[in-house]
Amino acid sequence: MRPEPATHALLRIAHPRALADAGTIPAWAAAALARAPWVVVRRARRRDGLIPVGVRGLKRAERLAAWLPADAVLECLTPSELAARGGWRSSARAAQVPALAALEAIAKLMRGYELDWGPCGSVGFELASGAATATGKSDLDLMVEARAALPRTVAVGLYAALARLPVRADVLLEGPLGAVALAEYTAARPPVMVRTADGPRLVDDPWDGAAAAA
């Protein structure tokens, strides 16, 4: 057994029928799951023991919030695990997808800062499922574990280094209260928005009270 899958984790399921609300899912979602039977853990609380998951369709507007029984999870891959596997190194698609091609430089950068990180979004989905999902225009969504406060010098350095890459990289810092955008933490004065399992909140310090919450 492994702990409850965290937000961003990709879960493989046997069939669209594995979803708790399978009877009500739209045709595009069933088609997407038939193509690649993977769902992503949403940032929400469990409901009646069910895991909150999202189904990704081909279009941006095709995103479905669904629920999955824990015993329907066949495989779980976190963004950190995807980063550790380095699947982009053997992907023939890196030539067409700059977001995949940029991962090697990002891995090096994150190693330099000793950060635990991983790809999310379309790139994470593609690396987990093996199904072509990212496109030539895809941004690169990344998560960085930040249980303790990320020093501002590190945040600013990381943000500046990412800005020099040929793709747009969006980083979420995963802290004890929830996720904060690196762009906002770096640039804006407080408050900043934290995405929590109970919805977004504005806080002055995303790591305040971290010890109590941990």
Binding site: D141, A181, A183
Partner: peptide, 9 residues
């Protein structure tokens, strides 16, 4: 001016 240019934001 508030908010950021980024996924889900």
């Amino acid at each position: 001016h508030v908010g950021v240019v980024g996924s889900g934001d």
